[in-house]
Each structure stands twice: as C-alpha cells, then as structure tokens.
Design a protein around this nucleic acid. Sequence first.
DNA 1: GTTTTTTCGATAGCAAAACTATCATGTTTT
DNA 2: AAAACATGATAGTTTTGCTATCGAAAAAAC
Lengths: 230, 230
Amino acid sequence: MNLRFTIRPNEKLALRDPESSELGRKIVRQGLILMHRIGYEHFTFRKLAAEIDTKEASIYRYFENKHRFLLYLLTWHWNIMEYTVVVSLRNLDDSVEKIRALIRIVTNDGPDLDDETGLDRNALHAIAMAESSKVYLIKEVDEVNREQLFKPYKDLCGRIAGLFGEYAPNYPYSRSLASTVLEMAQLQPYFAQHLPALTDVGKDDDPEKLISFLENLVFSVLDKYAREKN
Amino acid sequence: MNLRFTIRPNEKLALRDPESSELGRKIVRQGLILMHRIGYEHFTFRKLAAEIDTKEASIYRYFENKHRFLLYLLTWHWNIMEYTVVVSLRNLDDSVEKIRALIRIVTNDGPDLDDETGLDRNALHAIAMAESSKVYLIKEVDEVNREQLFKPYKDLCGRIAGLFGEYAPNYPYSRSLASTVLEMAQLQPYFAQHLPALTDVGKDDDPEKLISFLENLVFSVLDKYAREKN
DNA sequence: GTTTTTTCGATAGCAAAACTATCATGTTTT
DNA sequence: AAAACATGATAGTTTTGCTATCGAAAAAAC
C-alpha cells in the first residue's frame, strides 16, 4: 500500500497539533486506551495525566476539553474508514461488490490498511461504537458543526450515499440509508454485547450476522430502484 | 379512550415514587422541561431545585442521580409509546396497516392518547430524540440492565419485532430491524435539524419523508419474506 | 386529638471534575 | 548567545455530584 494519509484532523480540533510532539502523541495514544477502558463519562484529563506521568495543565495545552478530545479521536476513525473505503473499492467495478466491501469495512471486518498512526485500532473501534453519538447529541451541536468538525463523518456518509446512488440512482433516501448503516454498524454489536433483546446479530467475534443483516437491509431497499436487477 | 395506564416506572428507578407527592410531580414535570431546555449534560439537580424553589437534597430523596432521572423520563416515554401501539393497533387486522400505524406512532405522528400524565409530550419526545442513547451507552450498562431498567424499551422493541414477525415470519432479523426503526425514528429528524448532510428527511414539522423512508425500508426488507405479497 | 412517623426546608460540607493562571526550568530555534 | 517555546510544578476557582444533620411542618396512626 503506497498511499498516504494526507488528511489530518481539522486544526481547530486541537489547540496544538498532538502529532508534533512526544507528549502530544502520548496523550492521544494513551488517552484513547484510557477512554476505552473507563468510558467517556469517567475519563478526565487528570486521570490521563496521572497515567502518562504528566500534568493536567499540559494536556489542556493540546485539547480544550474532553469533548474535543473525543472528537479528535473519532475524526481519526472516520478518516481511516473513508480512506479504507476509497482504497479498497478502487479496484472494484461492480456496484454490488463495492457495497458488499463497504459493509465489511463499516462493520470493522475490512482490511487493516495503514498502521502508521500507532493508534490502537481495536480501542478506536470500541470508542466509535460506544461514544460516537455523544459528540453530536449535545446542545452545542450547531456551533460545533459550524466549525466544520463533523465534516469527516459527513464525508464518509456522503461517500456511502454516493455508492448507493451509483447502484440505485432513483432511490431518494441514500443519505438516510447511509447514516442508518453507519449507525447500526456500531449500535447492533453494542446491543448484541449488552442488550441482546434488541438485536438478532451475534457478538463481536462473529460479524457475519451483522453483515448479513446490513447487506439484506441495503439490497432489499436498493434493488427496487437498481439500474439493472441481478 | 377508556383504558388506563397501569404500567408504572420500575420502583427501583426512583428512591421514592414521585407521583405520590406534589414535590415529586413538580420535580418530574419541571425537570423534564428543564432538561429539554438545557440538555442532559448541563442539567443538574441544583439548577432544577432553584427553578422549582426547593433544595437539591430534596430532589436527591427522589432520584439517586440525573442518569436515573433521565431513565425515569424515558421509561414514561417508552411506556406511553407501547401503550399507544397496543391501543391503536387493536382494531386493525391487516399486518400492513398495523406496521404503517406503528411507524406513525414511533415517528411521533400517531394519536395522542392519555393526557393524564401531565407531562409535556413535546419535551418528552425531544428528550427521547436527543438523550435516549445516553442511558445505555455507559460503562454501567450491564448493571443497569440487570436491574431490569431497560425492560420498557426492550418490550417496545419486542412488540415491534413481533409485528414484523407476523407479517414476515421467516425474516431472521426482526429485532434488529425493530431497534433500527426505533433508533432512526429518533435520529433522522435530529440529523435533519442539525446535520442535514446525514439525511434526506425533512425537519420536524414535515414528518412525511421520515415516514416514507421508514415505510420503504421496512417493507422492502419484509416483503421478500412476507406471508403473501400485496 | 395527640403521638409518631414521614417529609421537607435549611444549612453545611466534602470530594471530584473542569478548568485557568503563574512561574521557573529546560529545550529548541535562530 | 539570545529568543522563543514547551513542559513541570504548584496553586487556585467554579461547578458538579452527593451526603449529613437537624428542626419544623404535615400526614398517618393510634
């Protein structure tokens, strides 16, 4: 794989680029792991500082608050995901195959491109699953959105919607379907793990049911509008 | 409408039944409105106490913490919703009609039964939209679940899944589809309001697109498995 | 109809979270 | 060598989340 990430999280997200210093990288890498371990609500910069043997104030020099920090992590996640989609689908022609591959990627069953980031991909996925909605389900959503900070998520969603549109040009809800697939790819495994009454898909280690559910969902909806039927 | 709510929120949810006293009712009614106004994160018992002219400690006599309070409110919401489903579908025979009616109810476009509760239904719906996932996306989810506190949500989901199963007995993901519909009925209008790039449905005041999206989704998926085609 | 229990108001206080400020020290840049 | 910057060390503020105590008032039990 000779492509590189050129996309970097929006500069407004961090007060200072964490990738530019040892401490910054430690904050991100260890912060990710700590948040994974104790959850967003229990996560504090004080605890992280203690863990990586630095001071609370030092972390505040990189991130305004933990909400921004979470958004920073998720931005990585969304960027990696979109990048993986772009790269993986490059050599596919068939729309059906593209959508199939896409579903595998959003369910975390795709290829693991790029290991340059040094981020714990497992933790990143778990955080995306359990915490991602907390970045936009807030009163300040409009202000944050005005700062373009949700652009990576919107881009990812837009790209998926584009693939749906390619397969079924007249389907009028491709964006809604894309966000549905993205959200459910996160939520259904969470339900499987913690509230199994809300789902039929299996636990993390068996992604096949989730993939089957989503494939069936997407193609059932799109086939009626598909350019040519299979 | 001569049916009554017999369902009451689980006793474990509140330390003391808020419906049993003037103060308790005030906490719930005004708390709902305050949370709607400032959002879950900014909501505190201190602020609520100031608003209703009581003391923080008094509120703590009713609810352990604000998470439990939110769960109490959502329990009402889920109960009302399931009750509305049961009552509204009682006189319908056709599975298709049932599912259609159901979708209207979960998108808040159903009949407004029961106004005995005195709860601001508008605020309740808005809170369900913006805050509901915060009750289960927490590290303590398993403990809370063990206390049966998500039962109302599971019951609602189970009932919807049951309707899907009635229409399409061999569809293997009726629970997942039910939770998908429930979640998207909340999330898509939120996106429409705040992150329109993620959806194709219109804003709150025009629920028809949302309904159309969900109907299309559900029937596209189920029709392939339906007992008899229409 | 008064005792007993319960409820609530009033006040206090504490530990943690979520920051901000300052200053010295060490480390790069220029 | 000087200037600029990053971090450590310390301190302090406000808000949140929660508990304790105690007396008065209201409700329930006798």
